Amino acid sequence: MEVFYERGCKLFFKKHKNEQKLIKKLIEQAIVKELATGMSKVKVAAPTRIEGKAIYEFRLNLKTAGSARIAFAVKNEQVLVLLITSNLQKDSFSRELETSLKGSNYTFNSRSTTPE
């Protein structure tokens, strides 16, 4: 499974620069686990779709980086992580996600880059 981190993750990674590898590992493990177990902790995050695929979100404890909400979409063997935020309140998270999605043309076939 390939996991790509979009620009909505950049600010979170910048804030937790020293923990970036651990954060990515935890997110990837959690997404793989959720996909394998029927996504019981996952909810639809926004009415917007990417290439017809729903955008999902869930909360995750990222150890020393604290709890975060992760928004992602899945198609075949590709995962696009669209947003990582420490904003845990659902309504403000949804607004932040919608702002992040506005004007963006995310695709699964693009070679997304990991923010540094």
Rank of each mutant, 00 (worst) to 15 (best):
V81A: 06
K33V: 09
A30D: 04
T37S: 08
A68T: 00
E57A: 11
L101Q: 03
A68G: 10
G103H: 10
R69P: 03
I84N: 02
Q29R: 13
L82I: 12
T113K: 15
S100R: 13
T99E: 07
I23Y: 01
A30S: 01
S40K: 15
T64R: 12
F93R: 02
E98P: 05
L83G: 02
K43V: 15
K33G: 04
V74P: 06
V74W: 10
F72G: 00
G38H: 01
G52S: 04
L83S: 03
N87A: 05
E98R: 10
E51S: 08
K24D: 06
L82E: 00
E57Y: 11
G103P: 04
T85N: 00
F72E: 01
R69G: 00
K63L: 09
T48E: 15
F93E: 00
S100E: 11
G38P: 06
Q89S: 06
L60H: 04
A68H: 04
E96A: 12
F58I: 12
S86M: 08
T64V: 10
L97M: 08
N61L: 14
E51V: 05
S67K: 08
E57G: 07
L26T: 03
G66K: 08
A36D: 15
L26S: 05
S86L: 05
S112C: 11
L88F: 05
K102W: 11
I50L: 04
A73P: 01
N76F: 10
T99Q: 11
L101H: 04
K43W: 14
I70H: 05
A71H: 03
V79W: 10
G52F: 11
K25E: 10
L62K: 02
T48R: 13
S40H: 09
K24E: 09
I31D: 05
L60V: 02
L88Y: 02
V42Y: 10
Y106N: 01
K24Q: 12
F93H: 03
L101A: 04
T85H: 03
I23E: 00
K33H: 13
G103L: 03
F58S: 00
V44M: 06
E28P: 07
R59K: 15
V44S: 05
T107I: 09
L88M: 15
R49Q: 03
G66T: 07
K102S: 13
L101D: 06
L60S: 01
S104M: 14
G66N: 02
R111A: 04
I23A: 02
